[in-house]
C-alpha cells in the first residue's frame, strides 16, 4: 500500500520536477520568478488538446504544444522583459509584468476555449503493469519515462554542450560572459524557449494523466512546481528534481492518509515549512551578497 502510493507519487513528482526545472532555469539566469510559467503550462495543454481534437494524433500535438509554448515564452521575453532589462528597471517591475502576462494568457484561454473542464484523451493506454506486487498504469509509466527523458536531455544540454556552458557562464556573471563573447541575449531567449518547452511537456503529460484540461489548471501546477523548485533550492537543476519527487510523494501520501481535500495543500504546507527552516532550499547555496 505504502509502496504503491510512494511509486504513484514518484511518477507524478517527475512531472512536477519538469515544471520546477522551468522555474529554476529562468531564475538562475535572470533572478526572476517566472509567474507566467503556470499559465504557459496550461496554454501548452490547450494547444495539444486543440491539435488532438482536430484528429492529427498525439505526436503532432506534442510538437505543436512545445513549439507554441516555446514561441510564446520567447515573445514574452523579447517584447516585455528585454526592454525592462535594457532600462535597468528594478526587479519587481519584471515580476509584475510577468504576472500581467500570466493573467492575459489565462483569461484569453478562458474566453477562447471557455472555462469548463474539457476531456483530454488518455495517453499511452496499454493496460496495467504489475511490478513488485504494485499495479501501475501504463500512462503513469510513460509519463515517468518521458519526463525522465526530458530531464536527462536537459542535464546533458546544460552540462555537456557549448550552449550549456554559455548558459552556466551567464548564470554566474552575465556581464563577464558578455565580455567573453557570449551573446547573453540569445542565451536568455534559448533559456526561455527551453523553460516553455518543459511547461508544455508537463502540461500535456498531466492532462493525459487526469484526462482533463481547463483554463485555470496552471495556477495549481505552477505553485506546485514552484514549491518543488524552492524545496530543492531554486536555480539548482538536480535540486528541482529531488524537490519535485518529494512533493509528489508527500502529496500521494497525504491523499491516502488524510483525504483528497489535502491534495493541493500539501505542496504549499511543504513550501511554508521549507521557507521557515531553510529558505535557500535543500541544495541551494546561502545567498551571500557582496557589497
Amino acid at each position: 500500500m505504502i509502496l504503491e502510493q510512494v511509486l504513484n507519487g514518484v511518477m507524478l513528482g517527475m512531472v512536477y520536477a519538469l515544471i520546477a526545472v522551468g522555474y529554476s532555469l529562468v531564475f538562475g539566469i535572470l533572478k526572476l520568478l517566472n509567474m507566467a510559467h503556470g499559465s504557459i503550462y496550461a496554454f501548452g495543454a490547450h494547444m495539444a488538446l486543440f491539435i488532438v481534437s482536430m484528429h492529427f494524433g498525439l505526436l503532432p500535438a506534442f510538437l505543436f504544444a512545445i513549439l507554441t509554448t516555446g514561441i510564446i515564452s520567447v515573445l514574452m521575453d523579447r517584447i516585455i522583459l528585454a526592454p525592462l532589462r535594457a532600462k535597468n528597471a528594478p526587479n519587481i517591475t519584471a515580476l509584475i509584468s510577468v504576472m500581467g502576462v500570466s493573467y492575459i494568457i489565462q483569461n484569453m484561454m478562458m474566453i477562447i476555449f471557455d472555462s469548463t473542464k474539457k476531456t483530454f484523451p488518455k495517453l499511452f493506454d496499454f493496460g496495467n503493469v504489475t511490478f513488485l506486487g504494485v499495479t501501475l498504469t501504463s500512462t503513469q509509466i510513460a509519463m515517468f519515462l518521458i519526463a525522465l527523458a526530458f530531464l536527462v536531455l536537459l542535464t546533458v544540454v546544460v552540462n555537456y554542450t557549448k550552449v550549456g556552458l554559455a548558459m552556466r557562464a551567464s548564470r554566474e556573471n552575465a556581464k563577464a560572459a558578455n565580455m567573453m563573447g557570449i551573446d547573453v541575449r540569445r542565451i536568455v531567449t534559448f533559456t526561455f524557449f527551453i523553460s516553455g518547452m518543459c511547461a508544455a511537456v508537463a502540461g500535456v503529460l498531466v492532462s493525459g494523466y487526469y484526462q482533463m484540461v481547463y483554463s485555470t489548471m496552471g495556477t495549481e501546477a505552477g505553485l506546485k512546481g514552484f514549491s518543488a523548485a524552492v524545496l530543492g533550492g531554486i536555480g539548482v537543476l538536480h535540486g528541482s528534481v529531488v524537490g519535485g519527487i518529494i512533493i509528489g510523494v508527500a502529496e500521494a501520501l497525504a491523499v491516502t492518509y488524510l483525504g483528497g481535500s489535502f491534495r493541493s495543500a500539501t505542496a504549499y504546507i511543504v513550501l511554508f515549512i521549507v521557507l521557515l527552516i531553510r529558505p535557500s532550499g535543500l541544495f541551494g547555496k546561502d545567498n551571500i551578497v557582496k557589497v
Binding site: 520568478l33 519587481i92 515580476l95 505542496a267 504549499y268 529558505p279
Partner: peptide, 10 residues
C-alpha cells in the same frame, strides 16, 4: 521580494 508574491499566492 519575489518570494512574498508566490507565498501569498499559495
Amino acid at each position: 521580494a519575489g518570494y512574498l508574491s508566490v507565498i501569498t499566492l499559495a
